[in-house]
């Protein structure tokens, strides 16, 4: 459904962030995009959603196709209207609007009012915690509730592909688990594809079908989630499960290189 073909992204004409990233999202699948800070995960999402333009970034090479249509020249509004919706990093709720108004904003592109009303109820069904708070100003919600609201808002557009940027950011482990369960449920109920950017690899690989690992603007590793979970590097540097258990030394150059890949 979504193909990202070897894209390069440059900010302000000089700062190259992505150096040839390719990935593939097929219908109804959850794809995880993992990697260290500054690897280019969020930039990849922004390239897909068209959000680069307001930040003076540009896709200089390669192409992004959605359902066979090339979208890397479109603006964010057009891309959103095509059925890709993004839940941005950092719980960006519209603070002075009520919970319900936030959800309505998400449904802005839709014309079917009755269905929108039903969808609001459906979102409250998925996230019962925010249902009682529907008339509250969303800026006063707790972090977890705000994250739920942001995901709910992205769902209101009835997207075919949802881009989720770090839904676990700053949330307690139990809450992360809860939100991930709901994401998995939404994915299976709605047959909606999800491209998930995440630092919490354990949580992400728990629900993903396929994963890509990025580093310095490139995809360095990819494979089915099960395989990635068993991958020696991922286990050691990301999940913190030292397979070797032996003393680590920088003299082992090979190990150092592997380590650098993750912590660069």
């Amino acid at each position: 459904m979504l193909q990202v073909n070897n894209i390069e992204v440059v900010y302000m004409n000089v700062i190259q962030v992505l150096r040839g990233v390719s990935l593939d999202v097929s219908d109804g699948k959850i794809i995880a995009l993992l990697g260290a800070n500054g690897a280019g995960k969020t930039t990849t999402l922004k390239a897909v959603s068209g959000m680069l333009r307001t930040e003076e970034g540009e896709v200089t090479d390669g192409s992004i196709d959605f359902d066979g249509e090339r979208i890397d020249r479109y603006g964010p509004e057009d891309i959103a209207a095509m059925g890709i919706s993004q839940a941005m990093e950092g719980r960006r709720v519209l603070e002075h609007l009520s919970v319900e108004e936030n959800l309505l904003v998400g449904a802005y592109c839709r014309k079917d009012r009755a269905e929108v009303k039903r969808d609001i109820e459906r979102v409250f069904n998925w996230f019962p915690k925010i249902k009682q708070l529907r008339r509250q100003m969303s800026g006063y919600l707790s972090g977890g509730e705000q994250q739920m609201l942001v995901i709910g808002r992205a769902l209101m557009a009835r997207p075919r592909l949802m881009l989720l940027d770090e839904p676990s950011l700053g949330l307690a482990p139990l809450l992360v688990e809860e939100i991930y369960e709901i994401i998995a449920r939404i994915n299976s109920e709605q047959r909606m594809a999800i491209l998930l950017v995440e630092q919490n690899v354990r949580a992400a690989l728990g629900i993903a079908d396929y994963g890509y690992v990025m580093e310095n603007g490139r995809v360095v590793l990819d494979g089915p989630a099960e395989k990635l979970k068993d991958n020696e590097d991922v286990r050691e540097f990301y999940l913190g499960l030292s397979a070797v258990g032996s003393k680590k030394s920088y003299r082992e150059v090979k190990h150092y290189r592997r380590r650098k890949r993750w912590l660069a």
Partner: peptide, 18 residues
């Protein structure tokens, strides 16, 4: 509603297609 939302956060508003 779109205007009040834009007052809060331009990027969010663009991401929902406004």
């Amino acid at each position: 509603l779109a205007m009040r939302a834009t007052a809060e956060d331009l990027q969010v508003v663009q991401s929902v297609g406004i």
